[in-house]
Every structure is written in C-alpha cells, then in structure tokens.
Design a protein around this nucleic acid. Sequence first.
DNA 1: CATGAATGAGTGTTCATTCAT
DNA 2: TATGAATGAACACTCATTCAT
Lengths: 208, 208, 208, 208
Amino acid sequence: MAESKQEERKRATRRKLLEAASRVFVERGYHAPLIADMVAEAGVGQGTFYRYFDSKRQIIEILLDDIVGGLLSQFVEMSESLPDSAEAYREASEQAILRVAEVMDTQQELCSMFLREGPSVDSAFAEKLDGILARFAELARFFLDHAITNGFARPCRSDVVSQALVGMALGLFESRGRGLFSDLDASALVAEGVALIFQGIGPETVEG
Amino acid sequence: MAESKQEERKRATRRKLLEAASRVFVERGYHAPLIADMVAEAGVGQGTFYRYFDSKRQIIEILLDDIVGGLLSQFVEMSESLPDSAEAYREASEQAILRVAEVMDTQQELCSMFLREGPSVDSAFAEKLDGILARFAELARFFLDHAITNGFARPCRSDVVSQALVGMALGLFESRGRGLFSDLDASALVAEGVALIFQGIGPETVEG
Amino acid sequence: MAESKQEERKRATRRKLLEAASRVFVERGYHAPLIADMVAEAGVGQGTFYRYFDSKRQIIEILLDDIVGGLLSQFVEMSESLPDSAEAYREASEQAILRVAEVMDTQQELCSMFLREGPSVDSAFAEKLDGILARFAELARFFLDHAITNGFARPCRSDVVSQALVGMALGLFESRGRGLFSDLDASALVAEGVALIFQGIGPETVEG
Amino acid sequence: MAESKQEERKRATRRKLLEAASRVFVERGYHAPLIADMVAEAGVGQGTFYRYFDSKRQIIEILLDDIVGGLLSQFVEMSESLPDSAEAYREASEQAILRVAEVMDTQQELCSMFLREGPSVDSAFAEKLDGILARFAELARFFLDHAITNGFARPCRSDVVSQALVGMALGLFESRGRGLFSDLDASALVAEGVALIFQGIGPETVEG
DNA sequence: CATGAATGAGTGTTCATTCAT
DNA sequence: TATGAATGAACACTCATTCAT
C-alpha cells in the first residue's frame, strides 16, 4: 500500500479545500470571496487550488452535489408505502419532513447559503437548484394527489398547493436559520408546520 | 415653470439609466452585468453613469426603494378596520393579498429579480430585503393574533405561522413567475392559497 | 470635425503601441517581452493595450501584414513586361531584386526579426511566413521558366533553383543585417548576387 | 565492468529525457512545450527532470551539441587534400556537400527544428547557431579562395558568395524538409545545387 | 453636461521548481 | 534514486473609475 499514502494525502488536500470553500461561502457568500481567500482559509498554496478544481464555480457545484445526494432519499422512502388513512398520511408526512429537516439542520448554514446565493451564481446553477426544489414539489404533489384520490385530503389544485408547501417549508427553514423560534426544536417546528398544512389557521371546527 | 429644459433632460437621463439597469438586472442578474453593459443599454456614455450614481450597488438599492414604497401600503390599509368575523377576516385577507399580488404582478420580473439576486448583493442589502419580508410577516402575525384572540382562528404559534405564510406566498409568486399555473389568474391563485391557509389540505370536516 | 480630434488621438495611441512593439520585438525577440514591456515602451497604461489589440500574437501579425503589403508588389511589376533577351532578363532581375532589397533595407531590423522569430511564433504564423517566401519563389520560378523556354537560361529544375535563389537572397540579407559586407552598398551586393545566379562560380569561359 | 547497474539506469533515463525532448521540440517547437510535456513524453516523474537537467534551455543546447559534432567534420576532411583542377574541385564539393546532406537527412526533422527555433531561443543560442553556420561559410570561402587563386573559379567577392552558398543550401534543405522535390533523392538535389553554384542559370556558353 | 479614451489596481491562472515520501 | 504533490512568483487580462475634450 505504498500508493495509498500519497492518495490519502491528495484526498486530504481536496477535502481541506472543499471545507474551506464551504466555510468561506457560508461566511461571505459566493461572489465576494476570491480564490485567494479560499486557499488562505485552507492553508494551501494558490496553485494547489487548480490541481483540484477549475474554478470557484465548479467547487460550489460539487458542494451542492455532495449535499443533495442524501436529501431527497429521505423523502423518497415514503413513496414505497403509501399511507392508508388520513391520520396515517399526516403522520407519515410529519416523519418525512422531520427527517429532511434533520438532515438540513446538520448542514444548516450551508443549506441556507445555497438558498441565498444559489440563484445568483449563474443561470445554470439557478436551474439546478430550481430542479432540486421542483423534485420536492413533485413528491409533495404525488402524495397529495394520492391523498385526495383516497379522500384523505380535500380536493384542491395539487400543483399550486405543493409549491405552496415547499415555499412554506423554506420560509420556516430560513427563519429558523435566522435564529427565530429558537425555543422550538426541529420536531416541534415541523409539528407546527404540519398542523398548518393539514388544518390551516381556521378555527377548530366544532365536531358533533 | 420651476423646471428648466436642462433639469428635465437630466431627469430623463437618470430615468434612462435606471430603466436600463432594471432591464439588465432582470435579464442577467446583479453580479454579471458591468457598468459598461448598463450604459450601453441606456445608450449613454460611460462617464455619464457616474454623474448620476456612484456604483451598481447604489442603483439596485434605488430600484428596490422605488418598488417597495407602494407595496406595504396595500396591506397596511387592512389594519385600519379589523374584521369582526371569521368570514370577514378571510375575505379581508384575500382582498389584501390580492392587492399586493396585483402590484407585484405589474413588476413581476423585477420583483423576482430582487428575490433571486437580493440576498447575494451584500449583507446590508440582504438584511434590507429580509427587513421588508419581515414587515409582511409582522403584519400577518398582527392579524393572526387578532383573529386568534377573537376566536376567528385556532390558537397556534403565530410567529411560526406568519413566517410560513410569507414563505408560501413567495413560493407561489416565484412559481407563477416561472410560468406555472398559467391557466389561473392572480385572483384564482390567491383564492387557492387563501383556502390552503384557512382550511389546510385536510378533508372537509363533515359538519353536523 | 469635432470627431476627428478624438479619432486622431486613437490612431496616435494605436501607432505608439505598434511602434513600441516593433522596437521591443526587434530588440528582444517575440517570446521574451511581456505585454507590460510593450506598454512601458509605448508609455501607455496596461489596459490601453487591450483596447487596441487582443494579444502579443495579434500585434506581430499586424506588423507583418503592414510590411509585406508593399513588398511583393515590387517584384510583381516585373511580370508585366517580360524581357526579351538574356541580357535584358538579367538586367530586369537585378532591378527587381534591388527594389525589394531597398524596401527591406529601410526596415532591415524588423525584417530580420520576422525571419528570426517568425518560424517560432506558432505554426500558423510560420505557415504565413512560409507562404510569403513561397510567393517569391513562385515568382522567381515563373521568370526562370520563361527564360528557359526562350533560351535565356539553361534548362534546369526551376522548382529547385527558385528555392535556392530565395535561400541565397535570405542568406545575403541576413549576413548584411549582421554587419557583413559593410563596404558594399545594396546595389553592389545585389550585383554580386546576380552575377552568382547567372554565371555561378565557374571560371570565365574563354569565348572564341 | 566499470559501470554498475545503477549507472546504466541513470544513463537510460537521461537518454529517455533527451529523446523525448527532441521529439517534443520537433513536434511543437521550443517555446510551447512545458517541462511537464517532456517528462510525460519520457514517461518519468516531474522531479526526475531536474536530476539530469537544469532547464529546457540546457536540454536544447545539449541536443544541438550532440548533432553538430559530426557535422562539420564531413566538410573539414575536404581541406586535407585540396583539388587540383576545376573539375576535381567541383567533384570534391559535390562529395562534401552530399555527405553533409546525408548526415542532416538522418536527423532531418531535428535539424529543421534548430534552424526554425534556434534563432528565437535566446541571443546566446542564436549566436551559437550563427557561429555554426559561419563555420560552414568560412570553409566554403576557404575553398573558394583557393579555387580562385588557382583559376578554377572566376574572381569574385568570396565572402559574399560563401554566405550566398550557405543560404542556398539551407533554402534547399528546408524546402526538402517541407516535402518539396520529393521525386529527387539527396544526391540528385545536391547535383542540381552544385550545377547552379558552378554554372549559374545562364544559357550554356557555346564553346568554340 | 456628456463623452469615451485612458488607466492600473485587482484577480485568475500558469508552470518552473522544490521537497517530503 | 525517483516521484509527483505542493508551491508562489510571474504574468495576462478585466473593468470600475477618472478626466481631458
């Protein structure tokens, strides 16, 4: 394994650069930092950057790809066993949303950065980001249509509602990132959001 | 005749530059365009820019200030006569949201640009933008608290819900900007959103 | 003619840069000088270079084009009236070669630079230069074939001989540039060369 | 067995690098290739280059020295027995030139590369190359002066003529390298050149 | 006032050279 | 000894800003 020592060092350098870039992007956004700032943060030489990456643009894309891999999978699982009652449906939604929220929570600052800076990187990056959010909206719509068909949800424009739900989720995520609701943990916040989704703000209907 | 020919021409040049900048920002975002692109679009000389503005940064701020002035006022009106029933409350909300939507619709592309590019301009601009959205959230929360107090809405974390509502609204606005829901006009879209807010997606409760 | 003042200044700047580049290339070759050296020599700012030219590569090509324009024309004239005796043929050759020599003499250093540096600029430039020399060889061959046909010259491989003649001319030109034959003026040198071309080095044939 | 396995291997590596450099220079000239290109072509590590050579500059000089050693010797032989008739003189010239041509033919591409790239390497290298050509010119002049003295050649400016002859030879060599005269072998081409040198292009003098 | 040519500090990128393994 | 990852000085090029006209 004489080779592996060298290889390991390369991977370490690459990781140092990615982590430094991540920190720098979180701290100062995408446009302001120079390559020089990232290599300084990583503690490597200027030329080292170009041994591993072509540009700032490529590095932010790699960071995004690294993070989205595990993200959608949380939600996708849900599609394997569709719930069979309104209550089960709500519970399953809450579980799925909570899992996504927990993953994003561990990378809270990086995710916020992507939502803030991503749309302005360039149009290709913006579209990639939109595509990711669109995947979430599609999943939401798929479940919602299923729920409507089975009478677990009221008939509605599921295309509109699913986009609204994604917007709502992002709104809450960003607010939390800004330090709001610091008295609530992720599950309490998700519970509040799910309540809003399923019941709305309307007064409790007096049953019976 | 307080205004000389000279002054009028200056104002025209200033407007030409602002409109050109607006078009260019909408088309290519904030970071990519050069001062040179904006003066070319405006059809004025390079030096002329600096007679009216200090920087690209200043111009986008002026454009933002121009647009937000009339925006909040639509919503604020509502606070002057608080509704006195759940139904009136819902109707008033729908009216207020619709008016904001209509204002934003007339400047749809510029508003989208601010939401996309604003967070990445610099931290001061991002905070200004956040402040504007926070105003909307505060208004929403004010109405919601009033509604809860009067039993027109179910008790909930109004801070969380109001942020969720703003997120939802932005999600729908941006989706619409991307060409989704093109079969719905603004009022139909707002109606769908308001239904979601008040009822959620849960099945119609069978009353009685 | 308010425009023309500006235009004149632009042309002066452009010329300053071309002349500075010419001096710098002559002095230090093509590869060694930096853009920074050329703008320093021209006494203009770094950015000014890029207002007029894309690269060092472009500037040397422009310099070459400027010089070759008038060069071939000297020789081409000759083709309009082909000489009708061996003696006339020799005299016409001498005249034509002398005129080319005189043109090259006025730009001696620049021409030497092209012959020295041109082949190494890049393959496209080398081919361009080869093409120019090939034009001279073609002209020489055309006259030679005419002379052979009319019995003014001995039968020979005119393709070989014409290339040899161009090589000979270049050899003499470069030697002269290096300070050799400084006791001979251009016409004496051309006369010596033409004698070699027509008679070779063989002993004077004893006629009669 | 003065030479260990170690030493043998070192010499092999050195030769690999020299041959790789030669191929790369022939293919892409002197300036364009990077050290990295040469070590890749040689199939050795980047650092290995510096165990054997200081710079690209040094390597091209070594390649030149390797090639010129055997070259002049071909011609020098001739000076040992000066010919004693015009005809013998011509035959001896043809033999000598042919031998040089044959040596250069075996390294045709490398020699062309030196003639093309050498003048632009730097002024010291250019002077070295000039010196080599000057040696040929001196030899030519030495024979020519001898011939003139003995009446085997017509009186002329032997300094001029010898430079012209070297130029002619180079012109033919480079043309041949470019694929011209491919129907002629080296000896036929030399014969044509020697005919030109001795007789010129003038019509056959009618003897008697 | 309007212009656009000129500017040069700032930045990305290259590549000869070093040195730990 | 051979390697190739790391380096940073060197260089090309950009573009906001100035200022003479």
